[in-house]
């Protein structure tokens, strides 16, 4: 450890000041707009915002999709991660590579693919009509289901990776030991795997949840103006309604939600480090 304080500040402050000017100050000003009025500080913008049924609906939908995507990712994530961890080393590495691969691909491209799959003449509709389940193409695009699928595909890898590292730290013989003691698979999961991988689940869950809340591309492409979420609503408020106060309220909601999730994550991470 070097002692020279002036040197330390000279090195660290440019980055901090940059972040403050480009980031903290403008974002802070933006957020404050939601609390300001001609008369002074007020919460009226929030009251206005939530008094409109559409906004309520969008807010609840955003939360609902966040929770649903996180839950689905957790269930699929556990099954996948467990299957991957059980593979021999070489195959395991390749599988992890395949899970990480989508993360390198532009979310625009990844979401775009769903248009080909879920569109009027998409694969799913072709298949349905071929089998004769329907005569008319079913509308999948611009539904909550489409957004849900898109978000799940986007963020599932984060959950799988978090759970893989949690499962790798699972004591080697814990599961066989529980089996020998007579636990069925359900009990093994509930009493052994879940408690021992709780942190990985929370880390993955936070990433998926905040990712889903603050995703823009997926709701924009797959939901459009029919299935607005907070981010797309914010965009609309600015570009269509030119309503910066409403935008500020939405920004505040988004930040509060993703901050809460991140603080939770940090808490858990430091609690783990202390052990």
């Amino acid at each position: 450890m070097f002692q020279n304080r002036a040197e330390a500040y000279a090195l660290a402050l440019p980055a901090a000041i940059f972040a403050a000017i480009v980031f903290l100050i403008p974002v802070g000003l933006l957020l404050s707009e939601g609390f300001r009025s001609a008369q002074g500080w007020t919460l009226s913008a929030f009251v206005d915002f939530f008094s409109q049924p559409l906004n309520q609906k969008v807010f609840l939908r955003t939360l609902k999709l966040g929770v649903m995507v996180t839950a689905a990712a957790a269930v699929i994530g556990y099954a996948t991660a467990y299957a991957i961890v059980s593979l021999p080393p070489g195959a395991k590495g390749r599988m992890i590579g395949l899970v990480v691969l989508p993360l390198m691909i532009s979310p625009v491209a990844r979401t775009y693919a769903w248009i080909v799959i879920l569109g009027r003449t998409g694969i799913v509709n072709q298949a349905l009509m071929l089998v004769g389940l329907t005569d008319e193409p079913v509308r999948f695009l611009f539904t909550e289901t489409a957004v849900f699928i898109g978000l799940l595909q986007l963020f599932l890898p984060l959950m799988i990776i978090s759970l893989i590292s949690a499962l790798e730290n699972l004591p080697k013989d814990a599961v066989p030991a529980a089996r020998i003691l007579g636990a069925n698979w359900f009990q093994v999961f509930w009493k052994i795997i879940l408690p021992l991988t709780r942190e990985g689940l929370i880390v993955g869950g936070t990433l998926v949840f905040t990712g889903s809340l603050t995703a823009y591309i997926t709701p924009a492409i797959l939901g459009g103006s029919k299935v607005l979420m907070l981010e797309t609503l914010l965009y609309q408020q600015v570009t269509v309604a030119n309503n910066f106060v409403a935008a500020s309220v939405i920004a505040f909601l988004l930040i509060v939600m993703s901050f809460s999730a991140n603080i939770l994550l940090r808490r858990i991470a430091t609690a783990r480090n202390r052990k």
Partner: peptide
């Protein structure tokens, strides 16, 4: 902080 907010704040 969600990116959309940063972009908006810089614009504004």
């Amino acid at each position: 902080v969600p990116g959309i907010i940063v972009g908006l704040a810089l614009l504004r």
